[in-house]
């Protein structure tokens, strides 16, 4: 085996570490993307019996964005097993308790419930902020593209740009500026 072939062999079977920035991302949409990298579905050598899944590091999970009124409408169910032990936690309450849980549960539920799922989840690292431990960060070699553009706030745009931006509406003649 030539040296180039040997490196190709290593690269094909090595675990790659990906990073995913959850800022302003829908956790339920991004779970479908993260799942593919975790299980190794993006590789041509994928097989269910083949341990070819990658590692995904999610950062900024505190700043995920839910659609519309889902923060107060989506409920997470838990039952202790005792009579009357059912509880429903709203998404914003869960996010207050642990800002990594929503994305974790979304990825967990996006995968099929088999024996492999718990082991695949071990390869997912979630951090609420930007700080990632050095021993995790030094392995990262790839970034997963975000699904949604992070919106820009109007007060973050410099005033000159906002003033010279092309205008669509003009005031009528008898308008008093407010």
């Amino acid at each position: 085996m030539s040296a180039a072939k040997r490196v190709q062999q290593w690269a094909a079977f090595a675990r790659t570490w990906h990073i995913f920035d959850c800022k302003w991302q829908d956790p339920y949409d991004s779970a479908n993307i993260i799942k593919k990298y975790l299980m190794g579905l993006h590789k041509p050598i994928y097989h269910p019996m083949n341990d070819c899944g990658d590692v995904v590091v999610c950062i900024n999970s505190k700043e995920i964005a839910l659609r519309g009124d889902e923060w107060r409408k989506r409920a997470y169910f838990h039952h202790t097993g005792y009579p009357g032990g059912a509880s429903w936690t709203l998404a914003w309450e869960l996010h207050n308790k642990d800002p990594t849980l929503i994305i974790k549960k979304a990825v967990y539920r996006s995968m099929k419930g088999n024996l492999q799922r718990r082991h695949t989840m071990e390869r997912l690292f979630i951090y609420p902020g930007q700080e990632v431990p050095q021993d995790v960060m030094q392995n990262v070699t790839n970034q997963i593209r975000q699904l949604r553009l992070v919106p820009t706030r109007l007060d973050q745009i410099p005033e000159e740009v906002a003033k010279t931006y092309p205008k669509v509406m003009d005031y009528p003649e008898d308008y008093v500026l407010k």
Partner: peptide, 28 residues
């Protein structure tokens, strides 16, 4: 409460008479 977290909106819902409940895509 729920207002302090990031929220995005879908523009297709503007002219919907009845906004459908977000289906659970992972439900089996």
């Amino acid at each position: 409460e729920y207002k302090k977290f990031n929220t995005y909106f879908d523009e297709r819902t503007i002219f919907m008479r009845k906004i459908p409940k977000p289906e659970d895509r992972f439900k089996r």
